[in-house]
Design a protein around this nucleic acid. Structure first.
Length: 228
DNA sequence: GCGACAG
DNA sequence: ATCTTGTCGC
């Protein structure tokens, strides 16, 4: 589990302050709304690190709702920022954008591995990426970043709300498979909670992770090996 | 002041 | 995220 966290290099307070302000700006761009129509193509994206100074991002496009693989691409870049909780997007989004450019077929919606608005300033990587691409996005994370929730029942399909003090709904905690740790699903940009949850459930195929992110995760690992 | 902290 | 063997449960 993520109980103990070894100390990393100190984050420059000036950089943190600047990036945090950029998030507050991006936050004003986020729009929560249902998709204009049922998606024909859904994409999944994820990043891996072949070396501590290299980031590799993958985009996998699937036909919806059949989930047949339509296309997969990847791109690598030098790492420019250490991992800082809450600022993940500034570390991975730049390279994700370059990978996205390589796609021949652009998706109607993107499932991002990480949080959407379930973030301290409501701009997790899914929302951040959605605004930069101006494409519908939502996030599927494996760990909580902020908010509180009741553990959902142990059966697949059980759902409980992820809320902020005061009652604000940040996302939903979903049991995607019997007796496995739940997923944290939240809308990113030009998407809403109901759609995010519905699409996540529609993409489950017996694994903990829905197909888009599961495959992106898989290829991020495969391409990483190829670079050795 | 003390803990929490996506990937 | 990454390092890294065996092991418990369905």
């Amino acid at each position: 589990m993520a109980y103990y966290r070894p100390p990393g290099p100190p984050a420059d307070p000036i950089i943190v302050r600047d990036l945090t302000r950029q998030q507050d700006e991006l936050r004003t761009q986020v729009r929560l709304q249902p998709l204009p129509q049922e998606p024909q193509l859904i994409a999944g994206c994820d990043s891996s690190f072949p070396t501590p100074e290299t980031v590799l991002s993958v985009f996998v496009v699937l036909r919806f709702p059949t989930l047949e693989i339509v296309e997969k691409v990847y791109h690598t870049s030098p790492v420019t920022l250490p991992y800082i909780p809450g600022l993940l997007a500034f570390r991975e989004a730049p390279n994700l954008l370059l990978a996205y450019d390589k796609l021949q077929r652009k998706p109607d919606v993107i499932m991002v591995d990480g949080h959407g608005i379930a973030h301290p300033r409501r701009v997790g990587i899914a929302a951040h990426l959605g605004v930069l691409l101006d494409v519908p996005t939502f996030g599927v994370a494996k760990q909580r970043l902020t908010g509180t929730y009741q553990e959902p029942a142990l059966t697949k399909g059980s759902i409980t709300p992820l809320t902020e003090k005061g009652g604000e709904l940040l996302g939903e905690v979903i049991r995607s498979k019997d007796k496995v740790n739940p997923l944290f699903v939240s809308p990113g940009h030009r998407c809403d909670q109901a759609t995010s949850t519905r699409l996540t459930l529609a993409c489950l195929r017996g694994y903990k992770l829905p197909e888009p992110t599961r495959l992106a995760d898989h290829w991020a690992e495969e391409f990483k090996k190829e670079l050795r």
